[in-house]
Amino acid sequence: MMTTKDFEAKQIIFIFLQPKEIISFQNDNILIKTADRKIKYQITCYRIFALFVVGHFVLTSGLIQRSHKFGFPIFLMTNGFKLYESFGGHMEGNILLRKHQYEYQGLELGKHILMNKVKCQRENLNLQRDKSEELKKAIAALDRYIKEIEYYQGNLEGLLGLEGSAARIYFKQEFNNVQWGGRKPRIKNDYINSTLDIGYTVLFNFMDALLRIYGFDTYCGVLHRQFYMRKSLVCDVMEPFRAIVDHQIRKSINLQQCAEEDFQLVDHRYLLKWKENQKYIQFLMKGILQYKMDIFVYVQQFYRAFMKQKDAKDYPVFEMIK
């Protein structure tokens, strides 16, 4: 399995293909060539952790072969960052791990994950310099929700209800630097919700790639219950790290890197303009990669704790410290 030292040298590569550009190979290097066949970008396969291809292109057997040979997953995305296919870069045959997954019952691990998530949201709010009375009340409310989740003894629906209530308080203050109607997943009714969806999609696929390294069944969750074609475990494990995306978007709004004019309104949905894709991926990945090693170590420790069937209190905790 991949070690911390191995992962440190790896890169997450996004390729935005323009019309008539192609992906080709030379020795063990991936080359991106322009329409006139000049080399636009080149990277060795040894350094790729995950490869994201945005836009339309011709898939060759060489790309698939190198994905399997060097152990990196390939994610194919539309121009709107919707994932439509992924392959490669996963371990097969970790039967004991999957046996533990299928046998797991209870809410303790789910509670542990949600407490970690709300603590990270609290830390995000605490990072704001101007502490208004409303912000202080929101931080105090999140503290109460952390305690409620910790001692909660009800069913899954009630637990998710606590998390949802905490989220409504959090988002109102996290984006108090703009006029905003609140978080509405996947509806894309404004540019902030649309940007959050993009950031969470990138984080989701990064986490999916990490979980595949260890052979998890990513469709079998411990908090999000099984649902047809939903990678519930990825949804679970990424929860504490969503705050990274939130914080980066708030900063990018303040720096005027993220703005409403970067989007076009199509059927009442805010969709990012193609020419802005690379800029948005750059600032969103900047936030995620700042915690690259923290995320890797978290997943590594999560795997070890799961294999040893430890108590929830012995699972890893992510902290927003940077």
Rank of each mutant, 00 (worst) to 15 (best):
T44P: 03
K82N: 15
K10L: 13
S252G: 06
Q18A: 13
E133P: 08
L135F: 11
Y291S: 05
L135D: 11
Q65P: 02
Y315G: 02
D36T: 12
Y280W: 11
G158E: 05
G93C: 11
M238G: 06
I149E: 00
L109Q: 00
K172S: 04
E157G: 12
F283M: 05
I244S: 03
L211E: 00
Y291R: 06
K251M: 12
T195F: 00
K40S: 05
E92L: 13
L162I: 12
K231V: 09
R122E: 09
I253Y: 11
Q101R: 08
K231Q: 15
K137M: 08
Y280D: 00
C220G: 03
K286N: 10
K82Q: 11
A166Y: 00
Y200W: 09
F49H: 03
K184Y: 10
F52W: 03
Q101W: 06
V234D: 00
Y298L: 00
Y170M: 11
D246T: 00
F72P: 02
A138L: 08
K310V: 04
K38N: 07
A259P: 04
D217A: 01
K38Y: 14
Q26P: 15
C220Y: 07
D190N: 09
G158Y: 01
Y214N: 00
T218I: 06
N126P: 12
G199F: 01
L96R: 10
G55P: 04
E261A: 12
H247Y: 03
